[in-house]
Every structure is written in C-alpha cells, then in structure tokens.
C-alpha cells in the first residue's frame, strides 16, 4: 500500500478553508470554528511523529479536527446535563393531552419552497444554531457524521429514550424555525 506523506508547510493554504467549513456547520460562532482550525494544525504538527501514513494527509487532519470538536462539546458537559433536564420538563409544542398547541400545528409546505438553494442553506444553518448545545451535538453526530444512535448514546453516555427525546425536540424546533423563516 502507498504510504502517505505530510507537507505541513502547505497545510494552511491547502486545507484551511475546507477545515473551516467543516467546523462551521458543527459549532455556532465563526471565531470558534477558526480557533478550532488553528488548534487542529498546531495539534497535528506536534503529532507528526505518530503519523504512520496509513490515511491521507487530508483525512488525518479531518480526524484531528473532529476530535477537537468533540472535546469542545465535552467541555460543556454541565451544560449538556442541564439541557437534558430542561428538555424533559418543558413542553412548548403539545398540550397536556399530547395534542398540538394551536399555534404550533404544522402547516403544509409548498414543493416550490422545498429546494436546497444556497439561500435556504443559510436559513437552515441559522435555525440549527438556535438549538441547544446538546441538540446541536447530537445533530452533528447523527446527520453530519452519520453515526448510529447506539454509538451516539455510548459516546455521550445517555440512554436510548433520552436520545430520542433530544432528537424529537430538536426536530420540532428546527421544523418550526424553517416554517416560520423560510416556508411562509
């Protein structure tokens, strides 16, 4: 198998923008995304002796960034725990019988608005940024990293039913935000 090489002198120019965009959809603030990219390059540079050339330089840098992002969320562990408690208590969408509140009833969406334009992506991103830290982390792992529910539960040390409550709440909120800001 071909061994891969590292060329750190070209990293910033070659991968800087790619890594920035990878981080931007995963954390809220652009400054934080940029700092994570910088952090990734610095960490990678120090870790060069451990690089065995089994994956490409690009994938290796992605892997380092992915780990940095998870660490960033784990630092917010206390926030995560209080989020979950709050999620359990509040119910902003259904009444005590579990029926839709009148002003939260889903409306029909027209197919003309169900398009993935760049303009829509901006709205989607803005709606995603309104999710709580926990919801954002679970969404990142589920949709952007394509991880299985079981693995996410293990990684975050949450129960399956807790996981579904988070996904459900996040989806309700995201749907509502899209309907308000894009569909109508």
């Amino acid at each position: 198998m071909q061994k891969h090489n590292l060329e750190p002198e070209n990293w910033v120019e070659k991968y800087g923008d790619m890594l920035l965009n990878y981080a931007l959809v995963r954390v809220k603030e652009r400054d934080m995304a940029r700092d994570l990219v910088q952090d990734t390059f610095v960490t990678a540079l120090k870790s060069i002796p451990t690089f065995r050339g089994e994956i490409s330089e690009k994938n290796w840098l992605y892997l380092v960034l992915k780990t940095r992002i998870l660490d960033y969320y784990k630092k917010k562990k206390e926030v995560l725990e209080s989020d979950m408690k709050k999620d359990d208590e509040d119910d902003n969408y259904f009444n005590d019988k579990g029926h839709w509140l009148k002003d939260k009833l889903p409306n029909e969406w027209t197919t003309e608005r169900m398009v993935q334009s760049e303009e829509f992506m901006q709205i989607l991103l803005a709606c995603k940024d309104k999710l709580s830290a926990t919801q954002a982390l679970v969404f990142t792992m589920k949709y952007l990293d394509g991880e299985e529910a079981e693995d996410i539960c293990k990684e975050l040390n949450i129960s399956a039913s807790n996981y579904w409550v988070i996904v459900h709440r996040a989806k309700l909120q995201l749907r509502q935000c899209l309907e308000k800001n894009w569909m109508s």
Partner: peptide, 11 residues
C-alpha cells in the same frame, strides 16, 4: 437536507 448542510466560507 441536513445531510447536505454546508457553508462556503474562507479564511
């Protein structure tokens, strides 16, 4: 659409 979520930013 979430699976296609992306940005086109630059440093």
């Amino acid at each position: 659409v979430l699976k296609n979520l992306h940005t086109q930013d630059q440093l």
